[in-house]
C-alpha cells in the first residue's frame, strides 16, 4: 500500500469496476422476482387443491411452465447476487472468499439446471 498518491492509498482496498453492474443486476432480477413470485403465489391460491393431478395439469399449461422456468432463473440469479454480497461482507480471507464464491456458483448453476429440467419434464409429460 503506497503512501504518496491518492490512487496508491486506495489501491487494493475497494471494489474493482463491477459494482454498478452488480447493483443493477440485483434490481433487474428483483423486479423479475416481484412479478413472477406474486404470479406464483396467486396461482397457488387459485388452485382448487394441491392434488398430484391438479398440479400436473397446471404444469402442462405453457403459461405455467414458462412462468416457472423464468421464476427459477430470476430467483436463483437474485439469490446468487445476494449471497455473493453476504460472503464478501463476512469472509475477509481472500482464499476462503474465493472458495465460498466458487462453491456458490457451482451450487446455483446446478440448482437452476435441476429446476429447469424438472419444469421441462412436467410440462412435456412422460409420466
Amino acid at each position: 500500500m503506497g503512501n504518496g498518491t491518492s490512487i496508491g492509498r486506495v489501491r487494493g482496498l475497494g471494489s474493482s469496476h463491477n459494482g454498478a453492474h452488480h447493483w443493477l443486476i440485483q434490481r433487474f432480477t428483483a423486479i423479475g422476482n416481484l412479478v413472477l413470485t406474486v404470479w406464483f403465489a396467486v396461482s397457488l391460491l387459485l388452485l382448487p387443491d394441491f392434488a398430484y393431478t391438479t398440479l400436473r395439469d397446471w404444469f402442462a399449461s405453457p403459461v405455467s411452465a414458462s412462468g416457472m422456468a423464468l421464476l427459477i432463473i430470476s430467483t436463483f440469479w437474485h439469490a446468487r447476487v445476494g449471497l455473493q454480497v453476504v460472503i464478501e461482507d463476512y469472509l475477509h480471507d481472500h482464499g476462503n472468499k474465493f472458495a465460498a464464491l466458487a462453491a456458490l456458483n457451482l451450487v446455483v448453476f446446478g440448482a437452476v439446471a435441476f429446476g429447469l429440467f424438472c419444469v421441462a419434464r412436467l410440462a412435456l409429460g412422460a409420466a
Binding site: Y52, L55, R56, F59, I72, T75, F76, A79, A111, F114, G115, C118, V119, R121, L122, A127
Partner: peptide, 12 residues
Amino acid sequence: LGALLCWLGALV
C-alpha cells in the same frame, strides 16, 4: 429455493 426444488423433484 431448496424447498421449491424438492417440490419440483417430488412432482417429477
